[in-house]
Nucleic acid binder design. Structure first.
Lengths: 165, 165
DNA sequence: ACCTGAACACCGTTCAAGT
DNA sequence: ACCTGAACACCGTTCAAGT
């Protein structure tokens, strides 16, 4: 494990446990047992850390989707459950442009592969499915549905339009 | 026009033209011809400004949706075009919890009304439609679709599952 | 090779003081 | 009633200096 990977480990738990505002270079360094300037020997800047977390999140989400049972509903469940288990990482991974030039090749397509497969290779359908799931998850994580809304039912309604094509 | 409304006017164009990082109390004050501490005589804090912009965005988006022609496709077009015309305000309005206690009553339901109407009153369908549109818009604004992707076609595919119910 | 203290240019916010 | 300068507790980042 490189020192950079240790930093990403600590940054990941700091982000998920205490929120994005708590992820500061000074606090991160303190949890690493060093001072903030020392971080820059292992990481180019804070954006580099965020890009690293984004890449890890995509890899982990992609693996979680790939492990889902066949069919649309299990895939949707896997997507939603990953987001609910890692809400801050999900937001970090999806709400900013992908740092594609910093990303290891194939990460993006690997994460998308299970959705493309479920769409039978239809790229427009795959993008629509992804957007549907992302919209539902994003609004849920932001607490935008009325309190007490039956989101399981909303997911079933949302997916019903995409069943048996 | 109250002084608070003037501040929100300036904040709105500052946010939309120069981005969220440029929306600082100091810069906002400078454009108002005052210093940062003076803002606090008209506004309780920065969160108050953001909540005000959020409320305005919802009102404006809701009016834009209400003016759309009948049918699902025109409503979807109106949603997407408002978001593309006000990308920073759209993100501000949707990516954070609604400050419901600061919001004038009825704002949230008024913005949602055109979607609920298009869904024939089915609340689950309305939420699914909203999430679909939000997901497509959010990913487009974050540049998450592959460069050159035909998003018009993706929208048609996305909406086809919701047509004639 | 790795870490440090000091410093720089910023933030949001408070407050006593001025008119 | 409205605005100000000075200050406080923070940011991310740079850099000369230490081991």
């Amino acid at each position: 494990v490189s020192r950079r990977d240790e930093i990403l480990d600590v940054a990941s738990t700091l982000l998920e446990e205490d929120g994005p505002d708590a992820l500061t270079m000074r606090e991160l360094a303190a949890r690493m047992g060093m001072r903030a300037p020392s971080l820059y020997k292992h990481v180019s800047d804070k954006a580099d850390i965020l890009a690293g977390l984004q890449e890890r999140a995509l890899l982990d989400l992609g693996a979680h989707l790939a492990a889902a049972g066949p069919g649309l509903a299990p895939l949707a469940d896997a997507y939603r459950s990953w987001a609910r288990d890692h809400p801050r990482l999900y937001e970090l991974a999806t709400r900013r442009p992908l740092a594609r030039e910093r990303l290891a090749p194939g990460v993006e397509s690997a994460a998308a592969a299970p959705v493309v497969a479920a769409a039978g290779g239809d790229e427009h359908l795959a993008r629509a499915l992804w957007a549907m799931a992302h919209g539902l998850v994003d609004l849920e994580l932001s607490d935008r549905f009325p309190p007490g809304a039956d989101l399981d039912a909303t997911w079933r309604t949302a997916l019903s339009g995409f069943q048996q094509r």
